[in-house]
């Protein structure tokens, strides 16, 4: 459940009403505005392939929840083509997203590698002599040992300033990371930015093909395509090589930052299965002490 206050604080409060929706059936019409789908963007169901209700058998379904559904599309043609329907696990793709956890994950991903090279010299590092500027007594002026002390604004060092290099590494617990991943996946699915494809095979290695495809389907300018192996099919690798905003990623590299950075997220069916498998394993594991416990030598 979301706190209205947090959601209302999202910058850019202009509501995007004209986003085409394919999931009008899965939403109760109480609060959402009616979204008109233009005729061009209506999904084309291939008559050669039976539009199968490919309901995967989902394991470990919690009570009081229903699986989410998503079309299975294909990248083999430019126009929107649907070849099936799949179910998504509600604990992975249908959680009430925790925006604060997503923020924490993004902060963690940024700071884990951030090293601050800001450096302020202390009094011992400042150039200059160690000579006493003026005699201790007799002048009626303040007493000083050297001109490098932090009392001096121009010639003095800084007492508690930044010291280079300062790492900002910290460890986010595994449970917070999982909440981040599930929240982001749920947001992507809820906001129609998640598309599931059968595989990343495309007919040509022409980069224009991918660009036309993204244009035609009204996917966001930036697209992240996720598949299980890290060696992707040749055609898509060559086509997206030069396009900097359309990126390929193996499942093991999936992270909150990348998912939010790219407007649209494309997952293959295999990737969906693998993600669900891994996240459900973590959500149901019982050896918490092994994962979160303090590291002890000789244990």
């Amino acid at each position: 459940m979301m706190n209205l206050r947090i959601l209302n604080r999202l910058r850019g409060s202009v509501v995007n009403v004209l986003r085409a929706s394919r999931f009008s059936s899965s939403v109760e019409g109480t609060g959402a505005k009616e979204i008109n789908t233009e005729p061009n963007s209506r999904p084309i169901i291939d008559p050669d392939v039976n539009p199968l209700m490919k309901t995967r058998e989902l394991k470990l379904l919690p009570k009081f929840s229903e699986p989410r559904q998503a079309w299975i599309e294909t990248l083999n043609c430019i126009d929107d083509k649907i070849i099936g329907l799949t179910t998504l696990h509600p604990e992975v793709f249908g959680v009430g997203p925790r925006i604060d956890m997503i923020h924490l994950n993004v902060k963690w991903q940024r700071n884990i590698r951030y090293v601050s090279f800001a450096h302020a010299k202390t009094r011992h590092e400042m150039p200059g002599t160690r000579r006493k500027p003026r005699p201790q007594k007799g002048l009626g002026m303040s007493r000083h040992g050297d001109l490098r002390s932090p009392l001096f604004t121009k010639t003095g060092g800084v007492a508690h300033g930044p010291r280079s290099p300062t790492p900002h590494f910290f460890v986010l617990s595994i449970w917070e990371r999982i909440i981040g991943l599930t929240s982001t996946l749920s947001i992507k699915h809820a906001q129609d930015d998640l598309h599931i494809v059968d595989s990343l095979d495309i007919p040509t290695e022409n980069k224009g093909y991918i660009q036309d495809l993204v244009e035609a389907r009204k996917w966001g300018p930036s697209v992240l395509m996720v598949d299980v192996p890290d060696l992707m099919p040749r055609n898509i690798t060559v086509a997206t090589d030069e396009i900097k905003h359309i990126n390929l990623m193996p499942v093991y590299g999936l992270n909150v930052y990348s998912m939010l950075k790219h407007d649209t997220l494309i997952l293959t069916v295999d990737a969906v299965k693998r993600i669900e498998e891994k996240i459900l394993y973590q959500l149901n594991r019982i050896d918490k002490e092994k994962v979160c416990g303090k590291f002890e030598i000789d244990q």
């Binding site: 470990l60 394993y281 149901n284 594991r285 019982i286 050896d287």
Partner: peptide, 12 residues
């Protein structure tokens, strides 16, 4: 079989 007895179940 005696070795398998010692394996921890991954979930309850």
């Amino acid at each position: 079989k005696y070795v398998e007895r010692l394996f921890v179940k991954p979930r309850i």
